[in-house]
């Protein structure tokens, strides 16, 4: 059985989405089984097309926000969604949606980016993540 890395994607800010996507890519390259559990604002960010207008930056680094976003654009860095897609191309990466957030906000699977494969509950996630590392972002 391969090693696992699970990411709880709670935040929906571009900086944290980028961090999650890059860690997922590295882990996929190093042959880990990667699960991204998107919940709360992380799930908001995965609503279809949301990435196009998402320019949110974590509050604690807000003063760097404009500069960070500007550099990403100027240097044509790939956006976080593309980075997750290429991680999926080269390795074993799954993105799962938190059932609670889906219910509270009446979001359906078809409202989300197609990289999200299924809706799961927290117990399923915990069970799947057991024996592996968990990162909370």
């Amino acid at each position: 059985m391969s090693e696992k890395l699970s990411i709880v994607l709670f935040s929906g800010t571009v900086d944290k989405l980028m961090a999650a996507s890059i860690i997922a890519s590295g882990a996929a390259a190093m042959q880990k089984e990667v699960t991204i559990f998107a919940t709360f604002y992380g799930l908001f960010a995965l609503r279809k097309g949301d990435w196009k207008q998402n320019r949110r930056i974590s509050k604690d680094f807000e003063d760097y926000g404009a500069q960070f976003l500007q550099v990403l654009e100027a240097k044509k860095a790939p956006n976080w969604l593309e980075t997750i897609q290429s991680a999926m191309d080269i390795g074993n990466v799954k993105v799962k949606a938190c059932g609670l957030t889906m219910d509270l906000l009446s979001i359906k699977l078809e409202d989300l980016e197609p990289i999200v494969s299924e809706i799961v509950g927290v117990a399923h996630f915990i069970e799947e993540a057991s024996d592996g590392q968990i990162i909370f972002l």
Binding site: I22, S25, G26, A29, S86, A87, D89, I90
Partner: peptide, 13 residues
């Protein structure tokens, strides 16, 4: 001109 992990992804491809 490609950023981490872009060059690695390119090598894998």
């Amino acid at each position: 001109g490609s950023f981490c992990p872009g060059p690695l992804m390119e090598m894998i491809r």
